[in-house]
Design a binder for these strands. Structure first.
Lengths: 230, 230
DNA sequence: GTCTATAGCCCGATAGAC
DNA sequence: GTCTATCGGGCTATAGAC
């Protein structure tokens, strides 16, 4: 079955244990990283036996990878749904030349929706552990990073880049790709530099009202970037 | 003298040991975080005795804080130099109304220089351990984050915000402050999402040529933001 | 598939000689 | 200030009963 299947048998019991261990592990690994998490604490939090980590995942590292596999699947289910239709739409436009005005507006709308979705995902308090794990993995990538990149990042960045290229055809592929990274930066910063954000803005927290302000700012920047004449 | 002085005596020997331990600790703490670093390994790398960490810094945590004190001072020496004169210039402009064209151009030039300095600092391979430590501290801030924020972040963000406010007087203080965060994001992303960057751009590494491209992109975005009419 | 028990290792802190 | 030696504890992995 899946590459992380237990060596023997199938059954609800084992599955629910695996699931509980993964969910507990997400919290623990996110808190202070791989090394700071202990398998004892994960097992306690999952109300499972510590030895089962070895049995189901081969060890602490196997559990870590299973966590990323799980997260990647969850995000694909959440974001990937929107990506497919856009890829189809872009393929449709492919052979055509310059965009008509309605097509252009449609592309802008799609771009905004993608950016909004990603921003909401990264600012959602429920996704905090995911975000922390992903960010940590970026700075010293292990095999887990490949799972993430292949799982959803690659596709997401790809369609955003294509949309930018459509909207600013004078850009080279590299210029468009680089501008996508700066857009990503404007989204990530609200998770990455959260402490700086709160202190600089003197916000008590990032709640729904703050997310609205953040989205307004990012969208305004994006609009400005799309109208830029350099 | 300094708050982290050893409890007794003064001398070159102790100072150089302290310094060696701090520099070794920067590397070790940066690698995989506070918990993964071991005092034994730090001492070995500093060619000092492990027990001296307790003597000079009170323990592992004291050494961690001393590392951030050191980094904060280094960055202040590097960035702070530029900040003082700009603060003075902004104070000069304070009572005046709308900017004249040459004043406006001067403000844009100062802003660009600040952004370029920060970008170069964060992309400099030598600063990689600093950047890693700073970023980790943001996500689960300890006392060390206060050292950083008070040490240089606060002043830097303050003058950038003031420059933006001068250049776009129609913005509220909060709008200007938020746009500064998105600028910060465009700089940080090249460190934070380094793995994604390399894979997405298919760059082998971030060298001087890539930094030039990055700067060009960030400056173009900034220009677009400053000319935005919303 | 789940459990207990433990082997074997590395850790941070510190007492005490110099 | 620097060193050696060690204490006490937490860790992962695993053997073996059920």
């Amino acid at each position: 079955m899946s590459p992380t299947s237990p060596p023997a048998e199938r059954g609800d019991r084992g599955d629910s244990t695996r699931r509980a261990l993964i969910e507990a592990a997400i919290t623990e690994f996110a808190r202070d990283g791989f090394h700071a998490a202990s398998t004892r604490e994960i097992a306690r939090s999952a109300e499972a036996n510590q030895a089962l980590i070895g049995y189901h995942f081969g060890g602490k590292e196997g559990l870590y990878l299973a966590v990323f596999q799980f997260i990647s699947e969850q995000i694909q289910a959440r974001v990937g749904m929107a990506v497919g239709p856009i890829e189809a739409y872009l393929a449709e436009l492919q052979d055509l030349g310059a965009l008509t005005m309605p097509q252009r507006e449609q592309c802008v709308a799609l771009l905004m929706r993608l950016v909004e979705g990603m921003t909401r995902m990264f600012t959602d308090p429920n996704a905090k552990p995911w975000a922390q794990l992903i960010l940590r993995e970026q700075q010293s990538p292990t095999k887990a990073f490949d799972i993430l990149f292949e799982g959803f990042m690659s596709r997401y960045l790809g369609i955003v880049t294509q949309l930018i290229l459509r909207l600013r055809p004078e850009l080279s592929r590299d210029e468009a790709a680089l501008s996508v990274i700066t857009i990503l930066g404007q989204i990530l910063v609200f998770r990455v530099a959260r402490s700086t954000l709160l202190r600089h803005m003197t916000w008590p927290d990032v709640g729904p009202d703050q997310v609205d302000l953040i989205l307004k700012q990012i969208k305004a920047n994006l609009t400005a970037m799309l109208h830029s004449k350099d």
